[in-house]
Design a protein around this nucleic acid. Sequence first.
DNA 1: ATAGGAATGTTGATTTTTGTTGAATTGCAG
DNA 2: CTGCAATTCAACAAAAATCAACATTCCTAT
Lengths: 251, 251
Amino acid sequence: MSKYETMLLQTVDMRGTVSVQELSRILGVSDQTIRRVSRPLVDRGALQKVHGALVSTKSAADLPYLARMNLNREAKVAIAGEVVKIIQDGDSIAIDTGSTSGFVAQALRNRRELTVVTNSAYVASTLAMIPGNNVSMAGTQLRDHDGASFDRSAFDVIERMQVDYVLLSASLVDARKGFLVHEQCEVDIASAMLANAGQAIMAVDHSKFEPQMRKPALRQPTLKPGDYLVTDRAPPDDFAGLFANLEIRFP
Amino acid sequence: MSKYETMLLQTVDMRGTVSVQELSRILGVSDQTIRRVSRPLVDRGALQKVHGALVSTKSAADLPYLARMNLNREAKVAIAGEVVKIIQDGDSIAIDTGSTSGFVAQALRNRRELTVVTNSAYVASTLAMIPGNNVSMAGTQLRDHDGASFDRSAFDVIERMQVDYVLLSASLVDARKGFLVHEQCEVDIASAMLANAGQAIMAVDHSKFEPQMRKPALRQPTLKPGDYLVTDRAPPDDFAGLFANLEIRFP
DNA sequence: ATAGGAATGTTGATTTTTGTTGAATTGCAG
DNA sequence: CTGCAATTCAACAAAAATCAACATTCCTAT
């Protein structure tokens, strides 16, 4: 551990981005030394290097959520458009967390007099701004990567509301196992929402039909006959069995 | 990843729409560079491009709220900058609702490991996305024009948290009556936050020193000696008495 | 004191980024 | 639809940053 590492890390993390030149001025060494000292840090992932400057990996951290929002963006926008066709002005809907839900919330800004319950702060704040909507945020403490809550109080809120629709998502769709997610708490919220909703709308983009790097293992609650499956392309034939009783929608 | 990306994103997200020329002035580079730097960002969907300007993809979602956010925008941005100087990485802070709070939340994205409690869904979702933050949303049912909550449960959450700072705002500052707002529920939330906070930070832009069309009549709780008053200009002399014990900050 | 080793500064070739120019495109008013 | 002004784009020249190799300095163990 070089003697400058601590100070360098500290400076960069504090300011977010700082140029190599400025760093050399601050630490009182040549720019070449800054490059040399920072190289192991960059390799180790403690810092990011760009031409002319070093940027804190922490500061670039606005990206994880945005990055996910931008994965398969077109697909998600298309799906959101289909979902919105199902929802009418004045309807009530429960919305789970997930990047697709974010897009649906965006699209739902064109609907009026909605009653919404969600455990995603992003969805809540997006829809609460629309005059005439009645939005309830379920839960208190927010998970940091997506701003969603899985508190006990979230269940209390969800269980109090009787809604027309529930929007659900999944991380992977498996022809035999069904709709899968990574965390049990997500399943629990989905179950609670489903129990108090008329019809479910399962929204998954086509990438969810293909194997994932990080394999989810937890099964979302089973959908009722007549529930919607909204996706951006016709699903492969292997899934025909799984989707037998569902109403499938795609653009 | 270019060295300007962070600053560019931040500027655009903060202001909603900003012209290429202004951006080049702000970052101190040519307009051509702005176009070059922004291209990958718009490809990635992090920004939207229109003729002559860049617009934040987020801003589209927050449009109604943003309309209010754009009143006295420079003043509020300046105030947010000052407030952020007070807050350190790792601090805990309670944040009330209001457009200035929205800007402070944006600016606080540069701080790490914050513990935040707020009754504004916008503030909550802005800060919850930052990895390492611990954000609690106080309240359930959201008021439609600003997405804030004044539920009983909001008080429960606020009263449970002991924080270093509380950020408060006001609709009008009267030399004799003090800091005024329109609704009793806002005072109640402010009182609850204040009771559990170390130092208060009252943030008001200069327009709040002048008479308003809609006159607020409810007085915010009294500040303690040593609490901060952050504003964008030196306040008129008539207010010297009111601010006697406060630490006044402005750019 | 001094030789060995590590860290730092310097130099010059190479690569990347930036500003400028002029032509092509776009948006808008008449 | 036409013309004007503003914006954008492509290409080239200039500037800045990077890298590798070598020279210098600093520290320490003998």
